[in-house]
Amino acid sequence: MTLISRRAALAGATGLLVAGCDKITTSPTVRKVLTLGEKATLSSQKLVTGPNTLAPEFTRADLSPRFRVNGNRMPASAEYAAHMTSGFVDWKLVIGGLVARPVAMSLAQLKSAPQRTQITRHDCVEGWSAIGEWTGVPLALLLRHVGVSANAKYVVFHCADDFSGTPFYESIDIVEAFHPQTILAHTMNRQPLSVGHGAPIRLRAERQLGYKQAKYVLKIEAVASLDGIYGGKGGYWEDHSGYQWNAGI
């Protein structure tokens, strides 16, 4: 066998192997089987982690010197640009869905509610982490205020940003929504939230990865099921990139 044909054979064999791997990774059955791992992870995490167990909190000495931005850096809409110019004085946070008393709250109203400040670690799904100090209103307070229904299983966050015209949204389950560290933050490192970090308000759900931390939150919706909301998988990244809905791992 000459060197050329041997090389060709090797390339051919590699090609076959790669094609075979492709066949496995793109097979719907294989993908379905793999989701069993996700289910097992979610159930066992719920089993070992109490509903109110806190994520670790840090001190100001632990703060990241520079906290990088995740997701979009600025919503593209004209409405958002107008809000930026006016310092978000007219920004309204709508809370609706399965609630007894839907409301629309201004930033000033949110700031006059009881606050929680926490220094926590933000973990991106990509692998990096940054520590920041967040101040905001506990979501549990707001949900009680609007009288969330007992049928609500998830809370959906509709945001002002989009990816190529597709609106960004995310969701957490009702347990995470009522978690004491789940807040709607308007202040980061003692400064008003910057545009890059989600001005005027972003979600902090501290037991979840970064893609759950919805920025530029416009509307909070309590729902019984995620079906029928955009792609039905509970979030922009879940719908479009196949990220797991459970962002606790």
Binding site: T25, L34, G37, E38, V125, W237, S241, G242, Y243, Q244
Partner: peptide, 16 residues
């Protein structure tokens, strides 16, 4: 795995 870049799929395989 997979033999193209997909963080979501890589995680799915890893955690299974």
């Amino acid at each position: 795995i997979p033999n193209y870049y997909s963080l979501a799929e890589g995680r799915q395989w890893h955690f299974f």
